[in-house]
Write a protein that binds this DNA or RNA. Sequence first.
DNA 1: TTGTAGGCGTTATCAA
DNA 2: TTGATAACGCCTACAA
Lengths: 344, 344
Amino acid sequence: MEAAGRQRARATITDVAKRSGTSIKTVSRVFNDEPFVRDGTRERVLKAAAELDYHPNMAARSLVRGRSFLIGLFYENPSPNYVVDLQTGALDRLHDERFRLLLFPCESARAMSGKLLQVARTSGLEGIVLAPPLGDDPRTVAELREGRMPFTRIAPTTALDASPMVGIDDVAAAQAMTQHLLSLGHRRIAFVQGDPGHASTGQRLCGFRAALAEAGVAFEPALLEQGMYTFESGLAAGRRLFAGRMRPSAVFAANDDMAAGVCVAAKEHGLDIPGAVSVAGFDDSLISRVTWPQLTTIHQPTYDMAHAATDALIALIDGQAHERAIDLPHRLLVRGSTGLAPQG
Amino acid sequence: MEAAGRQRARATITDVAKRSGTSIKTVSRVFNDEPFVRDGTRERVLKAAAELDYHPNMAARSLVRGRSFLIGLFYENPSPNYVVDLQTGALDRLHDERFRLLLFPCESARAMSGKLLQVARTSGLEGIVLAPPLGDDPRTVAELREGRMPFTRIAPTTALDASPMVGIDDVAAAQAMTQHLLSLGHRRIAFVQGDPGHASTGQRLCGFRAALAEAGVAFEPALLEQGMYTFESGLAAGRRLFAGRMRPSAVFAANDDMAAGVCVAAKEHGLDIPGAVSVAGFDDSLISRVTWPQLTTIHQPTYDMAHAATDALIALIDGQAHERAIDLPHRLLVRGSTGLAPQG
DNA sequence: TTGTAGGCGTTATCAA
DNA sequence: TTGATAACGCCTACAA
């Protein structure tokens, strides 16, 4: 294929000034919505700019203002649905804003630990949104604080005053789900934990146990399975559970992807849902509507959390007042995958 | 919360020059891996830079080089799984590259038509990757060409020589899937189309019909359903199909999300899969492994396509040689959702 | 209400 | 092998 034709040089502010018979300062005023420009002048400038197809040069603007207008979204998450919600929330907040969003998918919080500030500096970021579990890495948090890099966190559970944060009450949410299962008569309830690297894993287990304790139901270690927040890990956990001697009448998986895996495992064992076994998830991601029956789950406002975290970050960068901690509501969604306990 | 503490000013190339007892040009040489720097000098510069925590200012660099090192990924896609594959492919190609990726999720190709170049200019993009269906909008393509904006396209079907492209043979893939269903004895096969705004919609239908014709099976308009590539639209289409008088023995949905919807509709009607009805999808996205049984589908190398498209774009920007069209292989994945036709 | 001069942090030129 | 100096395009003083 032929080499790319050279683009003709972009018009600069000087070109616009010449063509409109004004000075570059006036053009600058127009493009920055400054006052003190006569309407007629403004129009002439705009006309010239349009004719020249002029667009302000971001690099020059950044350089002179000493700002990059770049913010970074760091995440380490195996679930595409979650990730896209996150991105959309952040992007929507930026819409028609002066900031740009750069994505930083991370292999693991551990691998990133101690390097995040470096990466941010190299990219010239002005601020950072940390999605779980990155917001819980102590080294990352300390580093960003010391480096005076503005950042906000989504659903952190540690060093809560280190930065503005937005989250939901994972403990209460998991507790509510467990209460729902208990209210259906279930007593033998298995719990599939998420990735141990995520703080939500501990929080949700905590809520689960709290509800059991409250109901006077003993916690059964044999019904606690380790997952990784992925569909495959949920499938594996489900297989272990249904093959074990102590078969649960209900399984609460700490996210929807794992719950979907548990559902498949149940089908493999010929277990009807919810007739033979109830399955509950967490997140209300797309996947929860795809299984059959659809999953009873907790609606987690991922989009809103990302939106709010981005909002807080911009306020932080601008030195404006903002809330230190925002708690968003969750919601129990009862759908078809949970039902009365058998012989209950 | 207290206002953000002022960050101490970033070290500049001048600071590093002073501290290392050299000139800014020498520092520049070191940071650009230019030759003709004595090893000792290089080390002194690097040491000073490390002590000062110096990072080159991207804005200044961009300004003087007249380049932004920004490329944009434009997509309009309802499926998070697809989108994340796309992003990951592009991002991975950029890894340790000098380019940055900016995301542009679009409401619709139509809404974007005629504005895309404008957006690209405003953002200072050096090049663009167009994901389907944006690469098939004639106005967008014409505009980018006229504006001499480098771009590559993923799976375009029109103006194939307008830009480098990478795709799969959608027609052949759909044909292969249809042949698979025919070989199982199915004759009453329904087809759920995707969003009419996507060219793949027509391509896949074409492959479907070609296979029918080849097998001497008449195409039945009553078994053609309109979807939108979303789970919900597949669910609705499935409901219509299973409620109609002409119930299909197999349903081929043009993507996995819709196929998953068809599966749910089948379950609602008490239809066993694949005993009573076979369901096939397209994409091999995560969702195809979540349904029960798992979906027979076409593996589409979305990640690789995005990777290759980004690769070609960079070559294009750099004025290097590159392939004009890359065709990636697809693969038929037979899983549990398709089986022998009933009473076949 | 408008314009002039200076500098932001780099890289490129060209001389040393 | 190195370094002084001039851009790059824009914004912020400061004048007019």
